[in-house]
Design a protein around this nucleic acid. Structure first.
Lengths: 334, 334
DNA sequence: CGTAGAAGAGAGAGCGCTTCCGCTCCTATA
DNA sequence: TATAGGAGCGGAAGCGCTCTCTCTTCTACG
């Protein structure tokens, strides 16, 4: 037994055939008899042979990989696990990649190591999707590797797949207004986040159009952030009858804060979230929200990468959709 | 301008140096002057040169990748996005991989394509973590590539990283019993799922020990499943004063069903979930639950793969932890 | 002025695999 | 029986890169 891991050469020698034949046999290619095929398979098995993916990729010229790069602003990596968004992105990319032999690789880094990661991935990737990557880092990536798409975060020159966050926020607030809410509070996300900023704009647009006061608070995109912000707002403005929350996770917290002080949802306070993530359906009552086609967006980005048709300023504004549940409509089904 | 993508050869020629020099310069290796380094970088830039990862991996012998294989039993791939578990697994693996130059690749397939995927990945991987992969498929994988760890699903011979699901369920039910619940209903997960089965055992153990009746229902691991099962149970057994639900996602649905008919949580019915996923904190009131160290388990599995110390029957039983929130303790902080 | 030593650059041998090309041999057909 | 066609296999040329070894040149010191 050698120490070195067996190569196809070893298999061929042991089976008494040529490398070419061994390769054909193991890959079930035409031009190899069932007999040899079995023999080679047998030898490979006993030798514990595993083809080297790198060598195979190099020789055959196929086998690409697309990279998903996620920057994590929170101190704890666990955040990734707690956030429903990434799973949806992965699901979308996986769908687009199904059937191709392109692999999906995941890279996550905290903000302080983001630069390193960006450079490392950009050097070697055949194409990448950027999630949560700030504008400047996205540009840095693009300069090293133009084969990249940013998800939801615009950056100069970098191809972008985005959804209509501004319009979504406007729609959400319009819905609250339509069902009669006039004292509508808003909880925004961190301004470092491009989506949060767009949603803020949608909010501003509607309250201007409807002539309503600006009752805003800010928080991190977490349940706790939503809870605290909502509690504070309710204290400052006891007459609030509607609440727009820029993320379902925060909205779930807001719902808890509202019921904790004995207000009824939606009768006393109607609440609407954003994202249509799992947090929206798990909240109690379930949250009306704005659905983003995250999977579809991720799939589109991936397909663009595969096809290579990335116009320099290519941009795609995915439409969002209002979902009505019990947090704004008591009669909605559960 | 050639059609073919530029190789290091092209860069070297264009820069008037040898391949070796170009390689050294671009990889910032010692033995190359700042002058050449700049020149080569410049040429590479204008040529749009991107090193071929496969060739590089082959030549250098480094660059591994670890694969995460997920089988999706639900009809819709979106499920992956909706389920908090996978994000946590990825977070754990990422943590373990940080600092190494080992890549993380993700593979997802539906049940009907699972066999193909298993074979394809097993043929080429340097090591894999199996999530949600049934026992027989895990064995099939292991036979082709013993460098594998199954997460939470035991399979003969396949190295396993599991948590104490049975003990967790017992603990959860004991907690309900301790706070005074005597008519405790249970909602179990699908029996195809190994975790669900273990939790079922924990439930059976406790109701036997405590001499309580078996008020059980089954459902898929979804919010809807939990909602329906809880509604049914409450109708059949109006005197229920506690509910053990085998997953937080289902428990979030159960909470909605309970409050929908006007019962108070935890005063009328105390509820406890399982997983400590995001669904637990988003529920209203927030759910007491059993926390699984999913990230830690995934990290352990990954490290084992990296180190290569996989004893054939290696097994690790991670302890679970009771988390108390308002669904069993009205006084708990939010 | 002579020589040791270091530093920079080039030649070339692989890494492990796929695949094109051509050879042999076996079978079916005239 | 002669021969075309095809199936099965081996030889060998790479795929694009890294890295060791060798050679050249340049600096520094006696």
């Amino acid at each position: 037994m050698h120490h070195r891991k067996p190569t196809i050469e070893d298999v061929a020698r042991e089976a008494g055939v040529s490398r070419a034949t061994a390769s054909r046999a193991m890959n079930n290619m035409p031009g190899s008899s069932a007999r040899t095929r079995a023999l080679v398979a047998q030898v490979a098995q006993t030798l514990g042979y595993r083809p080297d993916p790198a060598a195979r990729a190099l020789a055959s010229g196929r086998q690409m990989a697309i990279d998903l790069v996620v920057i994590n602003y929170e101190p704890d990596l666990v955040w990734i696990g707690g956030h429903p968004y990434f799973g949806r992105v992965i699901a979308g990319m996986t769908t687009a990649l199904a059937g191709t032999d392109v692999q999906l690789r995941i890279h996550v880094a905290s903000l302080d190591k983001a630069g390193e990661l960006i450079d490392a991935v950009a050097r070697t990737t055949a194409g990448a999707v950027l999630v949560n990557v700030t504008s400047d880092l996205a540009v840095r990536f693009w300069r090293q590797c133009p084969h990249v798409v940013s998800l939801n975060t615009p950056a100069p020159m970098v191809p972008l797949v985005a959804s209509d966050n501004t319009g979504g926020a406007y729609t959400a607030l319009a819905h609250l207004h339509r069902i009669g809410a006039r004292r509508i509070a808003a909880i925004h996300g961190p301004s470092i986040n491009a989506c949060a900023t767009s949603r803020r704009h949608g909010h501003r647009d509607l309250i201007e159009d409807a002539g309503m006061p600006d009752l805003s608070a800010n928080g991190a995109f977490t349940r706790e952030g939503g809870y605290r912000a909502a509690a504070r707002l309710l204290e400052q403005h006891p007459d609030i009858d509607g609440m727009f929350v820029a993320s379902d996770l925060m909205a779930a917290g807001a719902v808890q804060a509202i019921t904790a002080i004995g207000r009824k949802i939606p009768d006393d306070v109607a609440v609407i979230g954003f994202d249509d993530s799992i947090a929206a359906t798990c909240a109690n009552p379930p949250l009306s929200t704005i659905a983003l086609p995250v999977e579809e967006m991720a799939a589109t980005a991936t397909r663009a990468l595969l096809d290579g048709d990335l116009a320099p300023t290519w941009l795609s504004n995915f439409p969002v959709r209002l979902i009505t549940r019990q947090s704004t409509d008591a009669a909605a089904l559960c």
